[in-house]
Design a protein around this nucleic acid. Structure first.
Lengths: 338, 338
DNA sequence: ATGAAAGCGCTAACAT
DNA sequence: ATGTTAGCGCTTTCAT
């Protein structure tokens, strides 16, 4: 019965030109309020919804931003970190009226396939890309593309990129400081996957703090846990023979694994070994004892990444944005203090 | 220097019409191979990439599908189930050359805002929507919209919708059967959030199996754990005074909580209480003892949801698709049987 | 304040 | 096998 519901049709029914209808649709000025209301009424009555793709083509902006996750997402998706980050990003997209497109690169082939589509102006107004492993060249290619890009995490090889990160070095420092204040001397570390900047930076903070207190950095007290529970478990097993009196774990999930290893060895936390970890995600409160940990604002981090991107989209790429967010020590039970 | 790189420009440089260039771009027949190669060469040399939005507008299909997650995503995103599902869905999208748009509805307002955009033909070629809580009307509205929709999980109020689900009833049956075979009589259950069909169906399977073996369904042995670790912990605490000799937990995460409660009560698994859970996600193997659990094919489930959607998009909505995937009992340590 | 007209970059029906 | 032509549904100068 009714014709297809285009803006032309709305204009016709309201007795105005398509231009005016468009003005009303986009809340632009220069429309007599009487006419504006008439057009709005027609739109409401007919249940008109503009065609987003047509709007995109005409306006040259899609109102879609892409979240690009590098390979090895299995790792990422077993830690609650990632879902939380995604949630923050999605939240910000909703709030700013952007649609979120998710690109989970699961293989080299996926990257090859999607790169042409997303590196081109058109589909995406901008990209948030999660830093992956060092040497990952997808970031480099995206940064060189036409599309505004913000990196979530510090891109080691691209210091001039727009990025937002958490102050991993400072966070690690305050973790180790806490252990030092409690009188621990043989402080071991379980690192994350050392091909990521987050793991490297936390390691840096650990070393720096020890050195500043004239303590040796003992290689036998450091073991890589790859950010997984099982990795933390195995790392702790390697560390136990060297008798650390405290452990700084680079993530809550790894700390959970470390606790398992410690208990299996017949030791107790915090009596025999104190533990501080990093993240303050659900595992921290599920663990027994509950984990003293470095809180990082994951949700806010995601929001900030999007808002930074929107800023770049709106105001251009210069100067490069560099946002560093603060962490905070949260004291619970795993260090025995308080 | 060079003009903007449109298909017109490619056609001009290759000395053909835009139509021919389009044919080459889309690998369509009716182009002399000599010409095809020439056009392809020009495209490659210039680094031409088609404008996806223009393609969408002209072809009336976007090659984008939406994944809609209902409210209360905090629950969803603390369980590894959801990330896994998303991964399967993303994988399938990649493989079939579709872009995935993620809609995480975090509030009523989000739904109001996005509904007009996604329920309209144009942005999305189709939608995969995760069942939420019973009574959620977003599903109803989406099912009534112009856009092909497949539900992930059984939509209680919409038996005629296209959906894919896991056989939760059968899975729960085999879990309880396993406990019965091992000689357990007082089999308790920790249910999921009873506003979801997954929780209801597993509960149904539990009751049915008991009844088929002439055992009573004892309300004091049943407690709601809401699919969270902490919920499982608290549910188990409520159950302990009633002395179950076995527990069927509706998810691995809840089983983890149950184990915690059992240990804190000074009891042992499987000696004092046997545990079977549901999911077979990472928590199952992290737990000590490792969990005997009902494996559900989460990744494949996501893939299937997308493939079903693509089928509906291609071949129309009739007949309604109803895909039920099988589960499988995985025996580990938490029941004491090998 | 309003409208005419020219795109946005592509696909596809139709003609040759 | 190739090209002509007419859209797809909207935004946006530019006149008036």
């Amino acid at each position: 019965m009714t014709d297809k519901l285009t803006l032309d049709e709305i204009a016709r029914r309201a007795g105005v030109s398509r231009t005016t209808a468009s003005r009303v649709l986009n809340n632009r000025p220069n429309v007599r309020s009487e006419i504006r209301e008439r057009v709005q009424r027609v739109m409401a009555e007919t249940g008109y919804r503009p065609h987003p793709v047509a709007q995109s083509l005409a306006s040259q902006q899609s109102h879609v931003i892409g979240l690009v996750l590098p390979r090895r997402t299995e790792i990422l998706f077993n830690d609650p970190y990632f879902p939380r980050l995604t949630q923050g990003i999605a939240q910000a997209c909703n709030d700013h009226d952007y649609t979120l497109a998710l690109f989970m690169m699961q293989s080299e082939a996926d990257e090859q396939k999607f790169y042409p589509r997303i590196s081109r102006k058109g589909l995406l107004d901008g990209i948030v890309i999660q830093v992956g492993q060092i040497g990952d060249d997808l970031i480099a290619r995206l940064l060189a593309s036409d599309v505004p890009t913000v990196v979530a995490g510090r891109p080691l090889q691209h210091p001039n990129a727009n990025y937002v990160d958490v102050d991993n070095v400072a966070g690690a420092c305050s973790a180790v400081m806490h252990l030092l204040h409690l009188g621990h001397k043989r402080i071991g570390m379980i690192t994350g996957d050392m091909r990521t900047t987050a793991a490297l930076d936390r390691y840096t903070g650990y070393c720096k703090t020890l050195q500043e207190h004239d303590l040796p950095v003992d290689e036998t007290l450091i073991s890589e846990g790859y950010f997984t529970e099982i990795g933390g478990y195995e790392a702790m097993q390697r560390l136990l023979p060297h008798k650390p009196d405290a452990i700084f774990s680079s993530s809550d999930a790894m700390a959970l694994g470390a606790l398992r290893a410690i208990y299996e060895a017949g030791l107790t936390v915090p009596k025999d070994i104190a533990v501080v970890s990093f993240d303050d995600l659900p595992p921290a409160t599920i663990a027994r004892p509950q984990l003293t940990t470095i809180h990082q604002p994951v949700h806010a981090f995601g929001v900030k990444a999007v808002e930074t991107l929107l800023d770049v989209i709106k105001n251009g790429p210069t100067p490069p944005r560099r946002i560093i967010m603060e962490t905070e020590l949260v004291i619970r039970e795993s260090c025995g203090s308080r």
